[in-house]
Design a protein around this nucleic acid. Structure first.
Length: 287
DNA sequence: TCAGACCCTCACAG
DNA sequence: ACTGTGAGGGTCT
């Protein structure tokens, strides 16, 4: 099978930071390429000068799905300009200029982040790999290449058992993923409908799923639906905001939430991702 | 509002 | 090498 290629001019796009930043969990860095699956497409990516190079195993007539997933049409500098001009934010920006937000499939994003609770990113990656390998569909890959799998649909997972999912190392998250899949399939909550809603209303819908609290709901709102104002607060962000913005006294979660809702502007979610990445990188180098 | 439980894996001491 | 311990992009009761 031959490879099918496209090349897209890009600006301000840090592919490494974006794909390794803990918003998606199925990308692997291999031989200078980022290999992964978007929808039903196996694909590998790399930047070459001012271009993004993408290769697929099957012929592609329309690359819209790629542009959409990578948000190639987003003008990053216009977003970054709305960030607060304070020291912590600028330091975060300097650490990973070109970091982007992806636009993921809602179901995949939802299931992934349900599995993220009290897990390290590397462990989340392992769970997703096991899930897709066991219950996803095999996808066309280049000859001689390791097999690739689609993300199992909600329908597929709804028909499994808790034990099936525990077999994918989900632990106590297994019943959550199962219950959520069944709620999606039954139509109890429509993932489609969220696109038309306001942030608060959409969040309310996501909170109906078992295993989904505010943090995970906000991740899905931000990474799958493009609600840029969503600002997921996890232990890392908590630490970051506490240290960087409230160094003197300990602030409550409520206080921090209030602060983040206003301080970071209309694209707070992007700002959050920069802070998160900054903390991770800083932590890695000092430890 | 607040612990404690939840499942499991890995890193790191000792 | 072996066992013990703690914590990991939270949520539920």
């Amino acid at each position: 099978m031959n490879l099918h290629q496209t090349s897209v001019p890009i600006e301000d796009y840090d592919l490494d930071a974006t794909l390794s930043s803990g918003q998606a969990f199925r990308w692997k860095h291999i031989d200078g390429w980022w290999e992964g699956v978007i929808g039903q497409h196996w694909v590998r990516l790399r930047t070459e000068g001012k271009n993004l190079l993408a290769e697929t195993a099957a012929p592609v007539a329309d690359w819209t799905w790629l542009h959409h997933y990578l948000q190639l049409d987003v003008n990053l500098s216009a977003i970054v300009e709305t960030f607060p001009n304070d020291e912590p934010m600028q330091a975060s920006l300097d650490s990973c200029r070109g970091l982007r937000l992806l636009r993921q499939d809602p179901w995949e994003c939802l299931a992934s982040f349900i599995c993220s609770s009290t897990k390290q990113i590397i462990q989340i990656q392992q769970i997703m790999a096991a899930l897709c390998k066991t219950f996803g569909d095999s996808l066309p890959v280049p000859i001689g290449h390791a097999p690739a799998y689609s993300f199992p649909t909600a329908q597929r997972i709804a028909n499994l058992t808790e034990a099936d999912l525990r077999g994918c190392k989900m632990g106590f998250r297994a019943p959550y993923v199962l219950g959520t899949a069944r709620a999606v399939v039954s139509g109890e909550v429509s993932l489609e409908a969220l696109h038309q809603m306001k942030l608060v209303q959409a969040r309310e819908q996501l909170l109906k799923f078992p295993g989904v609290g505010v943090k995970i709901a906000d991740c899905v709102l931000l990474f799958a639906y493009g609600f840029d104002q969503a600002f997921p607060i996890d232990v890392w962000i908590m630490k970051a905001v506490q240290q960087l913005y409230f160094p003197k006294r300990r602030a409550s979660l409520k206080r921090l939430r209030k602060f983040t809702e206003t301080h970071f502007g209309p694209h707070a979610g992007y700002a959050q991702q920069y802070l998160f990445h900054y903390m991770r990188v800083k932590n890695r180098t000092t430890k």
